[in-house]
Structures are given as C-alpha cells and as structure tokens.
C-alpha cells in the first residue's frame, strides 16, 4: 500500500534495482493511487475535516459563525435529551444485527437441507426481495401496514388477537420495536443469501465425517457450519451494526422520531438539528460523536471475528 511497502517488496528482485528505478517505481505507485486518493480526499477527508471544524462553532449555516470550542460536545454528552437517540440506536442493533443474522443462519441452514432446487431458489429470491426495495419505499409501505386499519392489525383480528391491535407506529411502547422489525425484514434476505453462499462452499466431506462419528444435525451445525462461516458472520455483523447505529431512512419515513422522541436516532437528530433548527455546529458535533461511536463498536467486533483462525 504505502510507498515503502511497494519498493521494499521489489528490493530483492532481479535486475531492476538502484535508486533511480526505485524512485520511478515510487512515483508510478503514487500516480496509480492518485485518482483514488484525490477522490477520497475530496469526498471523505475534506467533508470530515469540515464537519470537525463546524462542530467547534455556533453557526446557522449562513451568517457569521462564533467559536464555541467544545461546548457543542459538552451539550451532546450531558443533555439527557441528546443521549436518548444514541440509546435507541443501540436498541436497533438487536433488530438490525442480532435478529437478521440469527434468522439468516437458520434459514440458510434450512434451505441447504432442501433438496428441491426450484423450491430452494424460489425461497432465496423471495427472501432477498426486500433488499432490492429502496428503504424509503419500504418505510412508506410498512407505515401503511402498521396503521390502525393496516394489514398487521387485520391479521391480528383474523387470528382472534383483536385485543392486541393498535396504531403500532404511534404507540409509545411499540414504535421502536415496530420500526426495528422493518430493518429485520430488509436485512434478513442479505444475511440469508450471503450465508447460503458461504455454506455452499463448505467441503461436504466435513459433514460426512461428523455423520460417520455419529453426530446429528446440531453437531454438524456446531462443529462445521458455524466455524466455516465465521468470517461472513463478521462481515454481516459489521455492516448491519453500522446500519443500526447510522439508521436514517426507515425512521425518517415512518415515524420521523415520534411518538414523542421514542424512535429518535442520531441520524434523524443530525438532520433535524442541521436543517430544521439550523444548528450546523451542534449537528456536526453529533455527527462526529456518531462516527466515533460506530468506530468504538465496530473495531472490537472486527477483532472478535478476525482472530482465531
């Protein structure tokens, strides 16, 4: 990756040695990397730095800005009202990560067992379908299903659970789980398909040896499947946890953070602070905090899934 790494790999090679060549290699290396680096600097590093800078000011986006130092961060970390969205984001991890990965694992194992290829591919397609629907459309569709007269309540009525019906997204206790389940619905397909591919690559001989040892399906799952798809699970946990912590679309299109602030998440709060209240500084500070939070959660998870081959 780096210039030194590039040339040190070459050092022992035949013929092309000497400082002149090395210098040219280095230049060529940078040249190849330049387009990507420039784009990365323009669209990732620059906005990031600007956000950090804005977070130190009190600014409405138009007029003169006032330097406030770390006041915006102090506000975020001490106001209970600003901490609640962060708590909600952690609750969403259950629905965006734990449930879809578990369900994906179960479904993938199940589909693997099904011998009928037509049925297996139909199941795969159906499960993956939510993944290709834009989240905004999913949000709107689900808000109809969750309405007082929507499909969810109709279904409850049909099976005799009419006493449980409620306007799910307007209910203070159930709104967060309700929007969380939309995430589960969207993400289960991805988990299933990815894990199915991973399971497909496992050497059948391993399963056979378990069976020869007298193991049942649980032993197969525990001793062969699970360790073999460890890396894939790591990937899914990582991207789904980021999706949970940085969620925006689903919440925005279904509840907008309500009722009250029961489903408020950092993503929606940043948008509201920045565009609604025109508190660019506070919004940027919350953005930076969210980024650090995601890193703080993801890096240890990454380690857990990467180590121990």
């Amino acid at each position: 990756m780096t210039a030194t790494g590039f040339s040190s790999g070459r050092a022992g090679g035949a013929g092309r040695t000497g400082p002149r060549m090395r210098g040219r290699d280095v230049a060529a290396g940078w040249l190849f990397a330049a387009p990507a680096l420039i784009v990365y600097a323009m669209f990732v590093l620059y906005p990031l730095c600007v956000a950090v800078q804005y977070s130190l000011y009190e600014w409405n986006g138009i007029g003169p800005a006032t330097w406030v130092g770390l006041d915006n961060y102090k506000n975020i970390l001490t106001e209970p009202e600003r901490l609640a969205p962060i708590r909600n984001a952690f609750v969403l991890i259950i629905f965006f990560t734990v449930l879809p990965v578990t369900a994906g694992l179960a479904l993938a194992s199940l589909i693997k067992v099904i011998q009928n290829p037509v049925f297996a591919s139909a199941a795969r397609t159906m499960l993956f379908l939510p993944q290709i629907i834009p989240l905004v459309a999913a949000g709107i569709g689900w808000s109809w299903m969750y309405a007082q007269t929507g499909l969810v309540n109709q279904a409850l009525d049909v099976v005799g659970l009419g006493s449980l019906t409620r306007p799910w997204l307007g209910d203070f206790d159930f709104a967060l789980p309700a929007v969380g389940l939309i995430g589960t619905w969207v993400l289960t397909g991805l988990c299933t398909v990815l894990l199915l591919t991973a399971i497909g690559k496992i050497d059948p001989a391993l399963y056979e040896s378990v069976r020869l040892d007298g193991g049942n399906w649980y032993h197969e799952f525990r001793a062969v499947t699970l360790p073999s798809v460890r890396k894939e699970i790591g990937v899914l946990v990582t991207i789904n946890t980021i999706a949970a912590l940085a969620s925006f679309d689903i919440i925005m299109t279904t509840t907008g953070g309500g009722p009250g602030r029961e489903t408020m998440v950092p993503g929606v709060e940043i948008y509201r602070l920045g565009f609604g209240e025109r508190e660019i500084g506070l919004a940027s500070a919350l953005g930076v905090v969210l980024m650090l939070l995601v890193l703080a959660v993801i890096l240890p998870l990454h380690r857990v899934f990467q180590e121990r081959p």
């Binding site: 590093l45 620059y46 730095c49 600007v50 950090v52 800078q53 600014w59 138009i62 007029g63 003169p64």
Partner: peptide, 19 residues
C-alpha cells in the same frame, strides 16, 4: 496526518460569511 493537515488549513478561517 492528512486529517491534521486539513484542519490546519481550515482553522485559518471561520465558516460562514462576515457581517
């Protein structure tokens, strides 16, 4: 290093227009 560099460059000017 790159981030620090950008911050240094940016720190010179406050965001927003003057009055």
């Amino acid at each position: 290093a790159m981030a620090a560099m950008s911050v240094v460059v940016l720190a010179g000017c406050a965001p927003g227009g003057s009055d």
